[in-house]
Design a protein around this nucleic acid. Structure first.
Lengths: 213, 213
DNA sequence: AATTCAATTAAACATTTGTTTAACTTAAAC
DNA sequence: GTTTAAGTTAAACAAATGTTTAATTGAATT
């Protein structure tokens, strides 16, 4: 991968950030290059100049963000001295924090999984596979140590972790309305939500994986 | 709602079905009216003739499908004589079956929740609210009868139900690859998946809501 | 001071977009 | 058989799309 070490200049970062937001809110085809250029306050030709094309632009966004997630997962594996359930809890915290802090990219990811609209499918599958394998490993380890129960649908647990987290993030606006929390600030609400979904998932995994409550 | 009772003719149904599939796979802006017309084997002008515009076309799709879900939920409420956990199980079965049998619409729904790309937001919020209220009611009832535990984050349980189901459906292709099930047919696999996610969620709810395993 | 090359721009490019038009066909109603 | 209205069509429409061009600026290098 040629662009593994990419240091973008200020203007390139403006473009990337704006594009991420607009792709998330209107979809790949719904966000025009002109809109992106205007909101990023750059000339429209600069996008082709720096990134080559619209497709390559969203690819750059993916490369930038997916690497983050991968590195985060790797970091977790190194923690050898944690108890099985503590490792699971760490993973939940880390994953929820990651997508909660990048709600725009989370939306793009969800879209990309639902379809294949000009998005690097292999990259997504790769990072998803990594996630599946990690959870599988953590649960199997816990079972071998006798800390976790035997009959667990590991794969479905991953789907619950990822699916619940994603759903909460993308439904943020709806939840804010339903819970009558429209007064408090965006950031504050996101922080609360992060906490709540994190605790919810931890409890869920604990009660499913172990005998304790 | 003027179009509550809409009986579409053959050609209109062709358009609706094709549009549902293409909107799901390429997004609202990614699927052109020309593509839809061509794949549905109708003249392009027929879409404006029957539905007025592209926006009104996707609205028609939503009206057609969302009503299905609403009616399904209403039907469930009538079952008075079921035990609390059996009601929950029934709800899970019904919900999973509904979105599993309509994977294209499921994808459109997920997209629509992630953003607001020319889609009737109120309609979605309405049916989501209904879902939330129903689960809340079922759990509260179970708690009053002493069948369910006390400290339950009801809202997050809904997010787990909806989020997990949606995620499994939209990740279908990925799961098929990861599990090396690429040999079996599309329908067969979807059936297996439906069964599996349904059982998973039932077990999840049981172990969280009650003391039994 | 002259040269070099990346950065920046407005304008133009060819396609594709959603929608409408106006002519034509079909088939039922009178 | 004529009239009426819905169904159907190819063509045309203006607007928007992603991308490229060719000219110009800027600043560093020679």
């Amino acid at each position: 991968m040629e662009e593994a070490i990419m240091d973008y200049n200020q203007k390139q970062l403006q473009i990337l950030d704006t594009a991420e937001r607009l792709f998330a809110m209107h979809g790949f085809h719904g966000a025009s290059v002109r809109d992106i250029a205007q909101e990023a306050d750059v000339n429209i030709a600069m996008i082709s100049y720096y990134f080559g094309s619209k497709e390559r632009l969203i690819e750059a966004i993916f490369l930038k963000r997916v690497m983050d997630v991968k590195n985060g997962l790797d970091e977790l594996v190194k923690n050898k001295d944690l108890a099985p359930l503590e490792k699971i809890n760490k993973l939940i915290e880390l994953f929820v924090a990651k997508i909660s802090d990048r709600p725009y990219f989370c939306r793009i990811m969800v879209r990309a999984q639902a379809t294949q609209e000009g998005v690097p499918t292999e990259l997504i599958h790769e990072v998803k596979k990594q996630m599946y394998d990690l959870v599988k490993k953590l649960i199997t380890e816990g079972q071998k140590k006798g800390a976790f129960l035997g009959d667990i649908d590991t794969m479905m647990m991953v789907n619950t972790l990822v699916g619940t987290s994603n759903h909460v993030i993308i439904s943020q606006n709806f939840l804010k309305k339903v819970w009558n929390q429209e007064a408090i600030s965006e950031d504050k609400f996101r922080q609360q939500l992060k906490e709540r979904v994190s605790n919810h998932l931890k409890k869920l995994f604990k009660v499913v994986l172990t005998d304790e409550r």
